[in-house]
Design a protein around this nucleic acid. Structure first.
Lengths: 215, 215
DNA sequence: TAGTCTACCAACCGATCGTTTGACAGATGG
DNA sequence: CCATCTGTCAAACGATCGGTTGGTAGACTA
């Protein structure tokens, strides 16, 4: 069996007291776990889940691949954990940064903007989610804490049609999907070297999306 | 070595004269090649390139995996051929169906509509292109007959700003990317069981994209 | 200081991967 | 009728895959 509470969704809750002294050779478990998630995310994002090798991840961490099983049970766990982490973070972010009142079209614009900013600021992890989530088994995928983002968009479109800020001839579902595409597609072309700041990009995209449905 | 002209971009040019009689047991090579491309595309689209096994493809075709090497040299070839085929087809389609004159914003709308229609009508192959093309080695990817679709969109935005049909405050590149995202995202959600016809979906998306940049 | 736990190593497992080779039945063409 | 070509089989190749097992040095706990 694996190290107790390890590898089961919620990981070790920061141990009791160990991180007092500087670790020369060994790394602490939580530190290592974070490194593992980070390396895994980077590798999944660049090569894809199936083309990623545990051997490669272990190499990047400077350990043997068998040692990874101290932290995980299966390779799929690793993908799951990476995605779960970013979903949780996104949920937090969007719930605290998007206004709950005002004209629907404005809230829509704000939601898209925050979504894009988050996407860019966590590009590696969001890439893994958007590009590799369907490599999870159906059972595992069902366990993901998905925040119904499309439903939220669709709801805002409907609200906007009620308060008159969004055109009545827009199909809510289609409109939401079009906007989602504009926003999510960012992960396919954004490069940090570009000359526009994440916020500028997010602003422009959000504004464009707004215009596409505004009354 | 492999069967001569086989497996090198341009495939056998339909053999000389064989397809006279009905083949009971054996299939003709060209027929088989088409089946192979089809099965490969379907498998790549559903499981991803790396998770696809030549064994699985061979099974679907009712042959042994070793026999596949009569048609291909490597697994990567198979991915390349699938993508190349759909790119060539798309190029033909878009060049014959999109008007070359009229207001730029109208040509933009038409281009998006035709793009989406094509995407849906060749969903399997376009999915392989959009989702798996980056599994090709850089060298192989460079050989793809890419039609500069983004550049074309961007050009239309610029034209539209010149002829006054598109807002001046739209960044051409960003506008093109947003539109491309809206259109390409279709491959992520379209299901044939849906109640909207491909043309209806394409119309709605194209109209929405138009509104997002129209003056 | 004795015992426990943490984080990892070393070695190995069976399965499966893409790919190669040699042979060969049947259709084709002279 | 004989030679050739086409499409496939049968069997094997080394490499590598995800995963398992048993051990253990060193830090921590009591």
């Amino acid at each position: 069996m694996i190290g107790g509470t390890r590898a089961s969704g919620a990981r070790r809750t920061a141990g009791k007291g160990r991180s007092r002294r500087a670790e020369a050779t060994r790394k602490s478990g939580d530190e290592r776990w974070a490194e593992l998630l980070q390396v895994a995310a980077k590798t999944f994002a660049s090569k894809g889940y199936s083309a990623t090798t545990l051997q490669g991840i272990a190499n990047d961490l400077g350990m043997l691949k068998g040692s990874l099983y101290y932290y995980i049970r299966t390779k799929e766990d690793l993908l799951f954990e990476v995605i779960q982490a970013v979903l949780v973070l996104a949920e937090e972010r969007l719930s605290e940064r998007v206004p709950v009142d005002g004209p629907a079209v404005e809230r829509l614009e704000a939601l898209v903007r925050e979504h894009v900013v988050f996407l860019i600021e966590h590009l590696t992890e969001t890439t893994v989610y958007l590009h590799e989530a369907d490599q999870l088994s159906p059972e595992r995928r069902a366990e993901l804490p998905v925040h119904g983002f499309i439903a939220r968009l669709e709801g805002l479109v409907v609200e906007g049609q009620e308060d008159g800020t969004i055109r009545a001839d827009v199909d809510p579902r289609m409109g939401a999907l079009v906007i989602l595409g504009s926003a999510n597609w960012v992960y396919r072309w954004y490069r940090p070297e570009g000359d526009l700041a994440p916020e500028e990009i997010a602003d422009e995209i959000a504004r464009t999306c707004r215009r596409s449905v505004e009354a």
